[in-house]
Amino acid sequence: MDIIINISGALCLFIGSFLCISGAIGILRFPDFYTRMHAVGVTDTLGAGMILIGLMFYSPDFLTFSKLVMILLLTLLIGPTTSHVLAKAAMKNGLMPELAKTDHDKNKDKEINSSNS
């Protein structure tokens, strides 16, 4: 029984940290704001959730366990909401996704970049 709990806890922790790292890679590699936010928003909610579930396997008593459950519920509520609000704020302030840009916009961006550098 102990071995099963140990292994499943470790597995959850591993998956969680892998997801968090992939989110971090995503924020560095993706081209524009929306895809980056997508990478972090999705992986962080699931990654943090998996890490919390992994920690639940290791929790010594019921009090710790229930606190972890509450944190999990909180992240499940807050994570997607913040991503939604961020995307909405960016959209409202006129930031266009890379794919929705026309060639004209792209040329303008290039001009701005070249004038900056």
Binding site: L77, T81, H84, V85
Partner: peptide, 13 residues
């Protein structure tokens, strides 16, 4: 709408 509802759920907690 979304953020308002989520906030209303969370505020008491």
């Amino acid at each position: 709408l979304i953020i308002r509802i989520v906030t209303k759920i969370l505020l008491p907690f």
